[in-house]
Amino acid sequence: MKRIAFYGSSLLSSYWNGAATYYRGMVRALASHGWTVTFYEPDVWDRQKNRDMDPPDWCRVAIWQPTDEGLRTAAGQAAEADVVIVASGIGHADDALRREVLNRAGRNALKIWWDVDAPATLAEMRGAAGHPLRRDLPEFDIVLTYGGGRPVIDGYRALGARDCVPIYNALDAATHFPVPPDPRFAADLGFLGNRLPDREARVAEFFLKPAAALPDRRFLLGGSGWDPAALPDNVRAVGHVGTGDHNAFNVTPRAVLNIARDSMAEAGFSPATRVFEAAGAGACLITDAWKGIEMFLKPGREVLVARDGDEVAEILRGLSSDDARRIGEAAMARVRADHTYQNRAEEVTALFDRMAQHRELQA
């Protein structure tokens, strides 16, 4: 049992695809544990035109066209896999693809629903008794999520999942590490995130409000969808930042900011990928407050926590370069020891092995 068919948004492009680095870290680490992975991604949202990664040697990438025939052809490959993984947020005909993959997967294959935005997905299902995922959940052997803790576990079980296990974001030390500062990203505080409806109000509170309160400080905004004309004068928007520039973006400003989306902040226990990317590069990270942060980084020593924009501004007023460096170094040591994708892949591999053994005993 070593062949995985993984259906996700994109491995090759982070363009409008915040899950890219999570997929890359997980799949690379799974490959190092002996898994042969084929990643199936649709050619949508101009992602293939904005690749920031070539097809790797540790994973086969199959790009399918967003047509009925393309979907059926991609889904049909599930029949050859020992483990079939369908992720949330693929970006084209998600419900139809999930249904077709379940129909085509082998009878003895492990079938995994991997939710990379679980709090939002659960909110959708609770609000729609006829949601297609409600119908499909009992056919999956297990739900994996990239965060959410006990609220997400209980939520999925209540809606019919056989079981739910969070596999948290982590550090891919092969791609995120300290680099020299880059003048393009010079600032007192940087934030990297695409403009999304359930993030915008929190960006206004935790990033734009401190910028307005500290007109003498420089703020850097990376990500797609932001309107430079609507920003304070001391906020510089640089648009989409490819993963090749993430290290420089993280280490150059005095501090970088993590802002959870509404659903993630409400559920807690959902550290974004950028938390580990920033820590892995040795950046001083300021995060909005959310339940469970202490599971991953120690507040005050390895990360700075703010409850609102006023506290972000207060942190920046008192943050020296030496303090920022010490916090960044402590965070880097912590994530390299406890929160790498190798750690996560060991957990996933052990889980799949237990599930396969249980199935054999039940046969």
Rank of each mutant, 00 (worst) to 15 (best):
G160E: 03
R162F: 06
D163I: 00
D163A: 10
C164S: 02
V165E: 13
V165C: 10
V165L: 15
I167Y: 00
I167G: 03
N169F: 00
A170D: 01
L171P: 01
D172E: 11
D172V: 09
A173M: 10
T175H: 10
F177A: 13
P178E: 07
P178W: 06
V179T: 06
V179W: 01
P180F: 07
P180V: 14
P180E: 12
P181T: 03
P183F: 04
P183S: 07
R184N: 09
D188Y: 01
D188W: 01
D188F: 02
L189M: 07
G190V: 05
F191H: 06
G193R: 00
G193I: 00
N194T: 13
N194L: 05
D198S: 10
R199P: 11
R199Y: 01
R199V: 04
A201R: 15
A201F: 13
A201H: 15
A201L: 15
R202L: 12
V203A: 08
F206G: 02
F206V: 07
F207R: 10
P210T: 05
P210I: 01
P210Y: 08
A212G: 05
A213F: 11
A213T: 12
L214H: 06
L214S: 03
L214T: 03
D216F: 08
D216K: 11
R217Q: 15
F219Y: 12
L220F: 06
L220A: 04
L221N: 02
L221G: 01
G222L: 06
G222A: 10
S224V: 15
W226V: 11
W226K: 07
D227F: 14
D227H: 14
A229G: 10
L231F: 14
N234L: 14
N234C: 14
V235P: 03
R236I: 09
R236G: 10
V238T: 08
G242W: 08
G242F: 14
T243I: 13
D245T: 08
H246T: 11
N247S: 15
N247R: 14
N250E: 04
N250Y: 06
N250I: 04
V251I: 09
T252K: 04
P253W: 01
P253Y: 00
A255V: 02
A255W: 02
A255K: 01
V256A: 01
V256G: 00
I259W: 03
A260T: 07
A260E: 09
A260Q: 13
R261H: 14
R261V: 12
